[in-house]
Design a protein around this nucleic acid. Structure first.
Lengths: 149, 149
DNA sequence: ATCGCTGCAAAAATTTTGCAGGTAA
DNA sequence: TTACCTGCAAAATTTTTGCAGCGAT
């Protein structure tokens, strides 16, 4: 199983990590973590907020909490090019770096384990005099269900 | 010279293309096209607007024009992961598809000609039953000027 | 008992839309 | 002439911030 299939880290472990970062474990934060824990794919802020029980967590708190979690390295931001940021939990010890394949029609998301070839990335770095290269990479296409017969 | 170095297509050629798409050539549109023509790298809406002579073009018109140009296939949208969409002119007959290398400190941008290996992309498509794959790919790192001595 | 966190509300920032007049073709 | 386009202003979104009270530690 790929390292980023994080869905089974217990909530208790997540809150422990948060506490370890000198952050308080509160109701809204547990709710957000538990929600992300059960989602296989990146979630938008509004998705997170509306998936939570009404009154469980203010929208502003979702914004603030996601930022905290991102700074704590527990959540990763993804961009599918539609202007809406989406967030995914990073499992403890996971290699956070991975990519997605998104259906342009139905928006279904598949996690991808392939990555941009490291040696080619190195070559790009060297050629341009850059160091510490990383990249963002997302794939788009038509999923099986959306393909014309 | 890479196909996407579009900076030298004359304004007249651009307006001709626009007219060919059944769109009118107006003052604001010429101003935007001429600006993008002189920019080597993707520009944000606000950048475009504030770079134009005051009163030359309303902000709402920039939004509307960029959308028109995007629909006409004359402009390409890029996402550097900071939530701000940026737009770059597509030269006539250019292969629009390319990527960037962005300095995480000073935001300098370098255009990259390397691409994700086609055969690996094909493999990802096949493995997941997807067709018509494309991708978005941007690199980030520390440029020569921003590297510690 | 702290001091961080939350809800609520207001503000700020971003993007879209309605409309009446102007203009490219 | 006829649509398309524009500026202006208002509205709709999205995100951030101030503040007083609450609560995790």
């Amino acid at each position: 199983m790929p390292a980023h299939r994080h869905g089974h880290e217990p909530l208790a472990s997540l809150t422990r990590r948060l506490r370890g970062k000198n952050r308080r474990v509160t109701g809204p934060r547990q709710a957000i973590l538990d929600l992300l824990r059960q989602q296989a794919h990146p979630q938008a802020i509004k998705q997170i907020h509306s998936a939570l029980p009404p009154g469980e967590c203010d929208l502003a708190t979702v914004y603030r909490s996601i930022r905290i979690l991102e700074q704590a390295g527990m959540v990763q931001r993804f961009d599918f090019g539609d202007g809406v940021a989406r967030f995914e939990l990073i499992g403890d010890g996971d290699d956070a770096h991975h990519h997605h394949l998104v259906c342009t029609q139905c928006d279904v998301v598949v996690e991808i384990d392939d990555c941009f070839p490291a040696q080619l990335e190195q070559k790009i770095a060297r050629r341009n005099g850059f160091i510490n290269l990383t990249h963002k990479l997302e794939f788009f296409g038509l999923c099986p269900s959306c393909q014309p017969a």
